[in-house]
């Protein structure tokens, strides 16, 4: 068994990691850290884990050595602390944005100046569909952002097949759930304000745009809306390209994902769910991708659960690869219908 510790275990993605770790056949839960919840039971914050663990939160200063370290902390923490954290574990999977960008200048532009820029080269971007071989040898994995995961996986086959390139105009529309905003409350997340909104969020400068452009090589025009969902991301990408045939798209998406365990092509002429739909993948590690085409436009869709394929689930998938376990270990849930 591999011991897995979670830094920042009181947040939503931290809680999702705990759910996956306690159900994982090869992982056992080590410490769970939280400054604000120190000494409280984990189940006082994550009630879904009642009966599954009697762990209590510990202060991050009391971190002990472990085998596998997941960091589910707000942006800025691990870019400072990573040198110390890596001394505690052979494998670190960081769920924040602190090690996703290759170029330190990207942090100046999209985040803050990076205090450990030399470590960026050591981090592998944690999308197995793009970097499976690199993850296999990685000791530092930067799990991708939720909006970025959905967007990259929707666009990746179009780029790989040459249907879309950096000369094409790509408009990216992302619809995000409330849990994607994290567990900290603010006025905008107050129920009376958040409920039923269709709220433009970072209309032209969402941070995840940086990693989407890095990984696709495209110049994307991205807008995110906060909508009425607790879990889920729906991404719709419009590429203004002419003369693409439906069969080309089938070939591109099958070529990219035909052997992938957690990406499914959802495009059907029949049934209620003809394209990717977030609620179909709720609680699962799947990313459903789909497409449609007209004379002068290709539309690519994707849907993920932001807590799963968009963060904790893909972090565990990457850890499974890095540790040599079955890639799908602990991630077998197929979702529910109806939900």
């Amino acid at each position: 068994m591999t011991e897995a510790t979670v830094i920042g275990g009181s947040g939503y993605t931290g809680g999702e990691l705990l759910r996956l770790i306690v159900g994982h056949p090869q992982l056992e839960l080590g410490q769970v850290t939280s400054r604000s919840k120190e000494r409280r039971t984990v189940t006082s914050v994550h009630p879904n884990l009642r009966g599954a663990t009697d762990a209590r939160f510990v202060h991050p200063d009391d971190l002990e050595d472990t085998d596998l370290l997941f960091t589910a902390t707000p942006h800025g923490y691990t870019m400072e602390e990573m040198p110390r954290l890596r001394d505690h574990a052979d494998t670190v999977v960081d769920l924040s944005g602190d090690f996703r960008l290759d170029d330190p200048a990207g942090y100046d532009e999209w985040y803050d100046e990076h205090p450990n820029p030399g470590m960026l080269d050591e981090a592998v971007y944690g999308v197995p569909e793009l970097y499976r071989d690199e993850i296999r040898d990685a000791s530092l994995i930067a799990a991708a952002g939720c909006n970025a995961t959905a967007s990259i996986l929707a666009l990746h086959p179009l780029v790989e097949s040459g249907i879309v390139d950096d000369e094409d105009d790509v408009v990216l529309d992302v619809k995000a759930s409330s849990s994607a905003g994290g567990a900290s409350a603010n006025t905008a997340s107050h129920h009376a304000e958040r409920s039923r909104v269709v709220r433009p969020y970072a209309p032209t400068s969402h941070r995840h745009q940086a990693e989407i452009e890095q990984e696709t090589g495209l110049d994307v025009n991205m807008t995110v809306h906060a909508i009425e969902m607790v879990r889920g991301i729906a991404a719709t990408a419009h590429a203004l390209v002419e003369g693409v045939e439906e069969k080309e798209l089938w070939k591109a998406y099958r070529g990219a994902y035909g052997d992938e365990p957690f990406v499914r092509v959802a495009k059907s002429r029949r049934g209620v769910y003809r394209y990717p739909e977030p609620k179909v993948v709720e609680g699962t590690n799947y990313c459903d991708v789909g497409f449609e085409v007209s004379d002068d436009r290709v539309v690519a869709f994707s849907a993920v659960d932001n807590m799963m394929k968009g963060s904790a689930g893909m972090a565990v998938q990457s850890a499974n690869i890095a540790l040599g376990y079955d890639e799908g270990a602990g991630l077998g849930f197929n979702g529910m219908h109806p939900v």
């Binding site: 089938w250 495009k267 059907s268 002429r269 029949r270 049934g271 003809r274």
Partner: peptide, 9 residues
């Protein structure tokens, strides 16, 4: 017969 991939009849 319907196609298992695209659902076409």
């Amino acid at each position: 017969i319907d196609c298992g991939d695209c659902g076409a009849e």
